[in-house]
């Protein structure tokens, strides 16, 4: 106790300085809206900018990979287009009575990514201003990536598929049985996830494709991965299927944020079920 008093009296100038500084800083932050706003926001924007700077360097080194993936994506999309040249005469215009697409996509660049944590997050360079909203699905050319978690004006964070709280509704491509895809629970390999809640009587083959069911945020049929092991835990009435993920999370570069244009309508309709 005596030593404490000696210490305090010896350094009283510094200690008093810290006390008075904290009091006045507290007053400043709590009473001046500009300072308060920039304390909590500038840090976020600042961190985002730093990530972007680092990413500018990284991008340069990964140009070849990105080019390859874009070329592959181009080829895939080209295959989807009907051969309009040869069939020109028979093309007829179909007027959709809904008059709009159900899903539209926003391209975004990944500026921060992690795969080795227990709960992984991704940051992209699109935000509120670009139409990104909380809860939207995110995919990349290969498959599902995650769900938008937080949105700032120019950036957004994504709760990656590699997150213990992420559950995505998935189906097996041949049997159409659906379950939910989870990651974590002792499995922390970025290449694999577990498909739960598939009933025991369903025959699952190795190598079968797992795709999105269309019951959640994602359009139906987006690839998730391939079955590598069936029925990890026997005995229960449900299978636990190990799935090799289609998305290479270690090399994410560009992603698409999925906007479900009919979501509000669907929600409204479904909520009316509960009231009756």
């Amino acid at each position: 106790m005596r030593n404490l008093w000696i210490f305090i009296s010896k350094y009283n100038a510094v200690i008093l300085f810290i006390i008075f500084f904290l009091i006045s800083f507290g007053l400043l932050i709590s009473n001046n809206s500009y300072q308060r706003a920039s304390t909590w926001n500038s840090s976020n924007e600042w961190i985002g900018k730093q990530y972007q700077k680092i990413n500018n360097v990284k991008d340069y080194l990964r140009l070849r990979d990105i080019n390859d993936s874009l070329a592959a994506e181009n080829m895939r999309l080209r295959n989807l287009i009907p051969q309009t040249d040869s069939l020109k005469t028979t093309v007829t215009t179909v007027t959709d009575t809904l008059g709009r697409k159900q899903y539209s996509y926003i391209t975004a660049k990944v500026i921060n990514n992690s795969i080795r944590q227990k709960n992984n997050y991704i940051t992209i360079n699109r935000g509120y201003k670009d139409g990104i909203r909380k809860g939207m699905g995110v995919i990349d050319p290969n498959g599902v990536v995650g769900i938008v978690l937080n949105v700032s004006p120019t950036f957004a964070t994504i709760q990656s598929l590699l997150h213990s709280d992420t559950r995505i509704s998935a189906t097996l491509s041949k049997t159409n049985a659906f379950g939910s895809l989870v990651w974590g629970n002792g499995n922390f390999d970025a290449k694999y996830a577990i498909l739960q809640d598939i009933p025991n009587h369903i025959k699952v083959k190795k190598g079968e494709n797992v795709i999105t069911s269309g019951y959640s945020l994602f359009p139906a049929g987006i690839p998730i991965g391939k079955v590598v092991e069936t029925g990890l835990k026997g005995g229960d009435s449900f299978l636990n299927i190990k799935v090799e993920l289609a998305t290479n999370f270690a090399a994410l570069s560009y992603v698409y944020v999925v906007t479900n244009n009919a979501e509000a309508e669907q929600r409204k309709l479904e909520s009316s079920n509960k009231t009756e």
Partner: peptide, 24 residues
């Protein structure tokens, strides 16, 4: 001063820093 400048805490903070400098 803050009370009249409508910047509560700002001048107090600067004066605190100044007081410390004075002591040193």
């Amino acid at each position: 001063i803050d009370a009249f400048y409508d910047t509560l805490g700002l001048h107090a903070l600067a004066c605190t820093v100044m007081a410390w400098t004075r002591i040193i």
